[in-house]
């Protein structure tokens, strides 16, 4: 789990600079990212963790924080 968090943290750090993103930071709520980032995030999660994000996964709460993304990944592997 920690390994997953680190990978996501590293990915996010390239997009969100000058601000620490903690495990429970709401990355969408603070206007930290744009629409292309959101698409790149989906692509990253799919490739890095060998999962497929599907129609039923489209809930903002699944992607809002690092903790939420780790939980989503865990539900698929």
């Amino acid at each position: 789990m920690n390994n997953s968090k680190e990978k996501i943290q590293t990915f996010l750090s390239r997009y969100i600079r000058n601000q620490e993103v903690k495990d429970d930071t709401d990355i969408f709520g603070g206007g930290l990212v744009n629409s292309l980032f959101a698409m790149q995030l989906i692509t990253f999660l799919e490739k890095e963790f060998s999962i497929t994000i599907e129609n039923e996964d489209l809930k903002l709460d699944n992607f809002r924080t690092i903790n939420a993304m780790v939980k989503l990944i865990g539900s698929k592997v």
């Binding site: 629409s35 292309l36 959101a38 698409m39 989906i42 994000i53 129609n55 489209l58 903002l60």
Partner: peptide, 17 residues
């Protein structure tokens, strides 16, 4: 298609890409 609120990302962006 997709879910309410996800029309542009990822649905529209997938097509536009």
């Amino acid at each position: 298609v997709g879910k309410v609120g996800f029309g542009f990302v990822p649905v529209g962006i997938t097509a536009l890409n």
